[in-house]
Amino acid sequence: MGNSCGSYQRNNQRPKRMSEFIFAINEADLADGGKSLVEVEDRLVLIFRIGEQFFCIDDVCTHDGGTLADGNHEGYEVECPRHGARFDIRTGAALCMPAFKPTQVHECQVTEGKVFVKLS
């Protein structure tokens, strides 16, 4: 066990800015259908890949503020591992109780094999 309190992708590189887009992860490091927890500017976000599309949401279940990182996801939906709230990763919309408020989405952009995120 490392001395970090969570496991996620750490970008040791200094953030490369593309206007307001910040480098998050290499395209090659995220398989189709996969998701990754990434630290972007002191914030933990989840990045999903579906085919050539990338989506980014806050790692926050709006029901109780807990993390979604360990939740299952299928298609465009991610499920909170604790109480089963589901969110649309494209819009952040809460799809079922016990959550009813959307979680924050962030815009993704892919340039030359790198995924950039614009924090909302």
Binding site: H83, M97, P98
Partner: peptide, 9 residues
């Protein structure tokens, strides 16, 4: 099941 889904608890 819309107010209390099975996954609630």
């Amino acid at each position: 099941g819309t107010v209390i889904p099975p996954s609630d608890n």
